[in-house]
């Protein structure tokens, strides 16, 4: 039986459990620096939430019907998860791909580029979920949520991590050096943080900016997270999930095509 399947740069990802050895490599590195890493995950957003939550919150009566600290909690949850996925897939993955030649070593072994990319996707997603969980711990410690619906944020964190890892891996595949990533922060991450409802409801924006915000994935992450933190079922669940999945999948596939062209030429 000979089925001729010529692989091209545009072939769909070949998914295999082999990615686990890539994930474990990154996990072993992380474990060595786990304590400072977890402290960073906790302390940074905690100060953010406390500072803004009390500082600004004391000036505001209520935002969208809840205390400002509670409002901010869901935004911070999504924003931190996005940030963690982004940093891991930009700076850390780039140093593994380009600087340390870690990927080259993997490719000399019986791993394919698809395995390596899937391993990186799984790893950055895992790491971002961990950052999200740190925020959940803060939310619980501050007594900002008391509904079991909060548990639904766990699968949501996986989806958010997947979405922003997929997108950031595109930048990784395109980048000639570390400086290139500033474009992504300036043109994508910062606008999302400021427009997508982290700090205030998107409805406060003029109509055209709301329309922009509706195209951005962070808006949809927050659209799901905020009701869950406040103990309500979100509206338009499938639409939000669809947008996040679409951005993540399209990003990952594009990143894979680009990285195949870059490394296997």
């Amino acid at each position: 039986m000979s089925l001729k399947t010529e692989k091209t740069d545009f072939s769909p990802p070949s998914l295999s459990w082999r990615f686990v050895s890539v994930w474990r490599r990154n996990f072993l590195v992380w474990r060595k620096l786990a304590i400072p890493s977890i402290l960073g995950n906790l302390a940074d957003p905690a100060f953010y939430m406390l500072g803004l939550g009390y500082g600004l919150g004391s000036l505001l009566p209520e935002v969208a019907g809840v205390p400002y600290m509670t409002f901010l909690a869901a935004g911070t949850l999504c924003y931190s998860t996005m940030n963690s996925a982004t940093f891991e897939s930009l700076y850390s993955a780039f140093s593994r791909m380009h600087v340390q030649k870690t990927w080259d070593a993997m490719l000399n072994a019986p791993l394919e580029l698809d395995d390596v990319m899937l391993g990186e996707l799984a790893w950055a997603t895992s790491k971002s979920v961990l950052s999200g969980v740190a925020i959940l711990a803060i939310i619980l410690a501050l007594g900002l949520a008391d509904s079991w619906l909060l548990l639904w944020t766990l699968p949501l964190l996986v989806l958010i991590g997947f979405c922003f890892t997929g997108l950031a891996l595109v930048m990784n595949a395109l980048s000639p050096n570390y400086d290139f990533f500033m474009y992504y922060f300036t043109l994508a991450i910062t606008p999302m943080v400021l427009l997508c409802g982290v700090f205030y409801p998107v409805e406060q924006l003029p109509a055209f900016l709301q329309a922009v915000a509706n195209w951005l994935p962070l808006t949809h992450a927050i659209g799901l997270a905020r009701p869950l933190v406040q103990g309500e079922w979100p509206q338009q669940i499938l639409a939000h999930i669809g947008v996040l999945l679409a951005y993540g999948s399209a990003g990952f596939y594009l990143a894979l095509v680009l990285v195949r062209r870059r490394l296997l030429k």
Partner: peptide
Amino acid sequence: PQVDSLDPDF
């Protein structure tokens, strides 16, 4: 390989 690819984190 010609270019060193040992893992410096380990």
